[in-house]
Amino acid sequence: MILVKDLSIERSNKKIFENVNLSLGPGKIILLKGKNGSGKTTLLKVLLNLIEPSSGVIYWKGKLLKKNLYNFFNHVTYIADRTSSLSKLSVQENIKIWTKIFLSNISNSQIENILKTLKLDIYLDQKVNSLSFGETKKLEFLRLIIENKKIWILDEPLSNLDNESINVIAQTFEDHRSKEGSIIFSSHQESEINVSEEVLL
């Protein structure tokens, strides 16, 4: 669905990466690997049209992505390396806000199930800033389910997580793959997630 051709990025006269080619189809998981500062986050931001590439084009369903931006946004979930949950509000309130913002029709029992598997159900009434960093990160993944979009763009989803949660996430990725969804994520560490393509930056 997404086709990236000969993408190069230059920022303040410094080349970050050159001639990256990607194609993200349904049922595909792409892992971006690379050292710190190799431009993983930059590439993801280029995909979201936040940064103008210095050369190269991105197509979305055969058309230029730039011209169909909001159509593209309707099908994509982005999770940054920072947590977007509102720290002053409780976990439950955050979930309620998310379901409203993303116009989601997910049922309460579904959310409860996910919270149980992520071991977050005991914190439901606590404020987010009393949670540990790994727990807020897990809470962030709830957005993937609530938004219910086809394409997931994830920036460093595996950092700061314990093995158990990584397994849960690997399982979620598999489920999404079997539902014809596609995922592109960046990571600097080895993991057991079964990816269909690795891109070294």
């Binding site: 946004f73 309707n74 994509v76 940054a80 947590t83 977007s84 913002i101 993303f102």
Partner: peptide, 13 residues
């Protein structure tokens, strides 16, 4: 801006 909600709102259309 700092917790990324601005970007989420933008991605939300």
């Amino acid at each position: 801006f700092e917790n990324g909600n601005l970007l989420i709102m933008h991605l939300n259309g």
